[in-house]
Amino acid sequence: MSLPATRSPELKTNPSHMKFEKLRGTFGYSLTILSVFIILLAVISIYIFVFSKGLSTFFVDKLHLWDFLSGTEWNPTRSEEAGGPVFGVFAFIYGSFVVTFLAAAIAAPIGIGSAIFMTEIAPKWGRKLLQPVVELLVGIPSVVYGFTGLTLLVPFIREHIGGLGFSLLAGVIVLSIMILPTITSISVDTLLTVSPEIKAGSYALGATRWQTIWRLIMRASAPGFVTAVIFGMARAFGEALAVQMVIGNSKRMPTSLLDPGSTITSVITMNMGNTVPGTLENNVLWSLALILLLMSTVFIFAVRLIGQRGRLMS
């Protein structure tokens, strides 16, 4: 078996065609490079812009960082006799974290539970029925969530639980429904990566379906579930409109779930139209935006880190 000395005629290619193919390759390559460059440019500019605006509160206006973060009094219009405007945002940071964590605490078990139902318990009709429902929930605009919450939830809380209705609780419930599809769909994707061979291995040892789900599939999917919940929390932390519509937008520190409150995002959306760029009040909003940016950076890094550790396991 020796190769023929000359190439067979079919293998000869037209030189002008080759030139065209080469040119097309170069063009495609440049196009992808350009796309990446645009994305990088956008991300870097956003970071630079938000940082420079957000930090000017402290470097230009000389607001004390600690007073800003830990202060619980927010009064941009306090008179000079009373000591001038104060910008303490602790109540908003607190509000953001409380609604985010509680929303995740409600949505995580429901989301993971329904994901298990869709993939393991009733993979046929369960997914056929629930997948579109979940996709629908993702697609509903946040203003619709907020409006529904305002119309149904707020009066319900006022009449049956107490308080004004506008409350952290209302924000928590609206957010938990909003992040439910995120958690569910990422959990479904995670569960689908557990190979059928592994499941068959468990059944072949005499495990029941429940044992296989609980002891094997859940454990194998744990890193993916954490990722799902973090993505949900990132969405909850960044959601502005729907929260703002139901949370009451009080600038005071809430003492119970039934108190009205504010989140970082709701303060920004409530106030951005009423401030003049370059003023301290406007810069303070940018500082809040900076906190949001840093938090979403933390969320992304957490997801990456867990993803890496998950890969080491599988």
């Binding site: 592994i198 291995g201 072949a204 040892l205 005499g206 002891r215 094997l216 396991m313």
Partner: peptide, 30 residues
């Protein structure tokens, strides 16, 4: 009982994504 007493080894190695110990202890534990 049938599957416990008539065990099966598959074509592709299918260890569970657990520790070596937990893989072996999986059957006795269930």
């Amino acid at each position: 009982e049938i599957r416990k007493r008539i065990g099966m080894v598959f074509q592709r190695p299918n260890p569970f994504p657990l520790s070596i110990y937990d893989n072996i202890a999986y059957g006795p534990r269930i």
